[in-house]
């Protein structure tokens, strides 16, 4: 049976600590480059701080982890890539980026409404010796290619190998947990198979508090968010949020 991996991120639980960002970068051998800024850095997982726009004691903040939403339909980045470096893996629903195939034209980055794609503006570099601390399961990307979240595909691969070695067809769900999910100290990020109606994540995604960003674009993103606060849910669509900020 093919899976549709997805997430539900409970924004009420997110404290904005950034453990997911660090764990993601370490797991995926994402370099930290001295000259990188918040506009040129590589943050496949990025926690964004969003204010309700009020001042004084009425001010509230929410932290929103933004990653590739793994759009299921009309996947904006897949159709634009001129050389098939991006594809939706039909077996997992994961939007895969193949850095070895990527030309670095960045068309996919302009196509992504979530700004969840990042370009390697520099050669990857670490302080001398740090290469010994890199994750052997993930290849280091080269300069001039686009990268993004692939739901820690190396971990899926390892889980599949483990299942195959044990003579099983299906992986044990406990063996495949992306780094950000594992790292979240409050359990705000939950990961599961949306194709499985019994998966708690699937059930949570149907909750009235669950929503997706820019769902009206019709791309069927597989990363859901959740909040009890109405102003947070109102951030989902562009038009309504301006009402929040101006009203």
């Amino acid at each position: 049976m093919s899976a549709r991996y997805g997430m539900v991120i409970d924004l009420d639980r997110c404290t904005g600590c950034g453990a997911c960002m660090m764990a993601c970068a370490a797991e995926n051998n994402v370099p930290a480059l001295p000259k990188a800024t918040n506009r040129t850095g590589l943050t496949p997982m990025l926690v964004r701080k969003v204010s309700n726009g009020r001042n004084g004691v009425a001010q509230r903040e929410v932290f929103i982890p933004i990653l590739c939403m793994h759009c299921e339909q009309h996947t904006p980045c897949v159709s634009v890539c001129p050389q098939q470096a991006v594809e939706v893996d039909r077996a997992t629903g994961i939007v895969m980026q193949m850095p070895q195939r990527c030309l670095g034209c960045r068309y996919c980055m302009t196509a992504c409404p979530y700004h969840a794609r990042y370009f390697n503006w520099w050669d990857p570099a670490w302080p001398a010796g740090t290469e010994k601390s890199l994750n052997p399961g993930v290849a280091v990307r080269m300069r001039g290619v686009v990268e993004k979240c692939n739901m820690c595909h190396a971990r899926l691969h390892a889980a599949q190998e483990k299942a195959a070695a044990a003579g099983k067809r299906e992986i044990d769900p406990a063996d495949y947990v992306p780094a950000c999910v594992e790292a979240c100290p409050t359990g705000a990020i939950r990961f599961g198979n949306l194709a499985d109606p019994n998966d708690p994540v699937t059930q949570e995604s149907h909750s009235p508090e669950a929503f997706r960003f820019l769902a009206r674009l019709g791309t069927e993103p597989k990363v859901y968010y959740k909040s009890k606060e109405a102003w947070v849910r109102a951030l989902a669509e562009a038009a309504s949020s301006t009402e929040v900020q101006h009203g």
Binding site: G18, M21, K49
Partner: peptide, 23 residues
């Protein structure tokens, strides 16, 4: 700080405290 903490202090707007940016 670990070099990767630049993700928190430089490559995002998460922590805007300037004193820790010298990671």
């Amino acid at each position: 700080l670990p070099p990767l903490s630049s993700k928190l202090y430089c490559e995002s707007n998460l922590c805007e405290s300037s004193e820790r940016r010298n990671a």
